[in-house]
Nucleic acid binder design. Structure first.
Length: 487
DNA sequence: CGACCTTAGTTTAGACTAAGGTCGGTGCCCTAAT
């Protein structure tokens, strides 16, 4: 079969990017496949193309509603109409209609949570499934253990669907995370295609400051001098808001804050304005980034301390997809690691909460409130309820799982600290962490090896010309047409 | 760690400060009554 002609006719490309063809051939050969491809190399093509050569539908498990909407929209623009996002954006009747005619759709996007609804799953079971895809598969390991436990049960879903051919896609995963992915998806002898996480055009800098105030001043100076656009990451919504306001006061007008507290419509607007160059700096929490397709991001600054190397790499990996010089700066003040430590502590239930949950006699729905659990702690307890052990045994077992998980998270944080404090080349240390061979190029590498700061600074104030920009009100209306109909 | 809130103490009535405690980040899903 001629893959190149399908590539040309269906997608309009003349050639494959690195990794794509190998992954597609592996799938067409019938092998479960794990693909770790660098950001921006067109991962979605890896399942979209083989879809036209395989019998049956393609199920794509996606972590975010906005990501599903983006992808289905893009596919429709390309001319692929038999695609649907099966999620809570659909009204009751729309969903019913879709479920009755599921076999009409070649591509079905769905969240892990929705996939666990017995009614939905029973409908999907009746389909012929050509390919089962898990996009952003590192979420299994990163979120599955506590935040979104349905990610850990995707293997069970696969079983109940008759173990369909499966593709797991990610951009950043250590060997251990890759193992987790294969284990929890229950892949059979998976083919692995692992490409380097190294991004030679991104320089690294760890900037140590003496105090919080000094850190703020340094950040403002960077925001003024560095080439835009850029992202500044915070571990607090409030800090992101305040810094966005502060930067506006400092004369950097095109600045916006983005976090989970900003309402959905506003979030989409900010994201679009950033992509079209109307916003130069985004002050964000970890809510921002997944699925952002913007090639010319010039800097990513971390104001707070990242929880682990993987998430740090994912966040800085959003810079410089166009291959041009870009910089990742981490601002550090002694004691910064205490904040993520606090966050980690609140992720998992305490021993006394575990014991109390185990002996809980009332309505399960009241347990969350009565035990003073966060939603996340509760979902952890809820997930392990299915172990079905006698009360005391359950308490011991779950407490040990919890302790193990806590130790793991602390270890990840320690690794991050080690990287910050290390006096070895930043890039080599990252590659070592991901189990990759050393990289010889030393030019414009990191603050240890040295780089030319001028490469990343704005030469002069750039007057941005108002280009042909989309009409936002129209776009938003289109996206939110439902709420208008209902309201 | 820093920001913010509550509480206790002082002192003689509403308001001040200091001390002590808590919190901080990611997202799916419709539960049921107008």
């Amino acid at each position: 079969m001629d893959l190149n002609s399908i590539l040309k006719t269906k997608f309009g490309f003349d050639r494959f990017r690195e990794g794509q063809e190998a992954v597609i051939r592996s799938l067409l050969g019938g092998a479960d496949t794990l693909a770790m491809l660098p950001t921006g190399t067109g991962k979605s093509l890896c399942y979209q193309l083989p879809a036209y050569l395989l019998k049956g539908s393609v199920i794509v498990v996606s972590p975010l509603l906005s990501l599903m909407q983006d992808q289905t929209e893009q596919m429709k623009m390309r001319g692929e109409k038999s695609v649907i996002a099966l999620n809570s954006f659909l009204t009751g009747t729309e969903r019913e209609t879709a479920l009755r005619h599921l076999q009409r759709y070649k591509f079905i996007f769905i969240s892990p949570e929705m996939l666990h609804q017995p009614y939905i799953l029973s409908r999907i079971k009746q389909l012929e499934i050509g390919l089962f895809v898990v996009d952003e598969a590192h979420c299994i390991s990163q979120w599955g253990y506590d935040f979104r436990p349905e990610y850990l049960s995707l293997g069970e879903v696969r079983k109940s669907l008759g173990m369909p051919l499966t593709l797991a896609l990610t951009a950043t995963a250590t060997e251990q995370v890759r193992e987790d992915i294969c284990k929890y998806l229950e892949l059979r002898a998976p083919q692995r295609f692992i490409y380097s996480v190294n991004r030679p055009n991104i320089a690294f800098k760890v900037d140590c400051t003496g105090s919080y105030r000094e850190k703020e001043e340094k950040l403002i100076a960077y925001a003024k001098t560095l080439k835009k656009p850029g992202i500044i990451y915070f571990s607090s919504k409030k800090a992101a808001e305040e810094m966005a306001e502060r930067l506006r006061l400092e004369g950097i007008a095109e600045t916006a804050a983005y976090h989970s507290g900003v309402d959905q419509e506003q979030r989409i607007l900010i994201q679009q304005q950033f992509i079209y160059g109307q916003i130069g700096i985004i002050c964000a929490t970890s809510a921002f980034g997944m699925g952002i397709n913007k090639a010319d991001i010039r800097f990513v600054i971390h104001f707070h301390f990242p929880l682990q190397m993987e998430s740090y790499l994912q966040e800085i990996g959003r810079a410089g997809r166009d291959g041009l010089p870009s910089i990742a700066i981490l601002l550090y003040t002694a004691g910064d690691e205490l904040l993520p430590l606090q966050l980690i502590e609140s992720e998992l239930p305490t021993h006394s909460q575990i014991a109390a949950f185990s002996g809980w006699k009332g309505d399960v729905k009241d347990a969350e409130f009565a035990l003073g659990c966060t939603e996340q702690q509760y979902s952890f307890l809820q997930h392990y309820k299915k172990l079905q052990l006698p009360e005391e045994e359950w308490t011991l077992k779950v407490a040990s799982i919890r302790d193990e998980r806590m130790a793991y998270k602390r270890r990840k944080l320690k690794e991050m600290e080690h990287w910050v404090r290390s006096e070895a080349c930043r890039r080599q240390e990252i590659l070592r962490y991901f189990g990759e061979p050393a990289f010889s190029e030393k030019e414009n590498c990191c603050d240890i090896c040295g780089f030319d700061v001028g490469l990343y600074e704005e030469k002069q104030a750039v007057q941005r010309v108002a280009e042909t920009l989309p009409a936002w009100d129209f776009l938003l209306q289109k996206i939110f047409r439902r709420s208008e109909q209902n309201g």
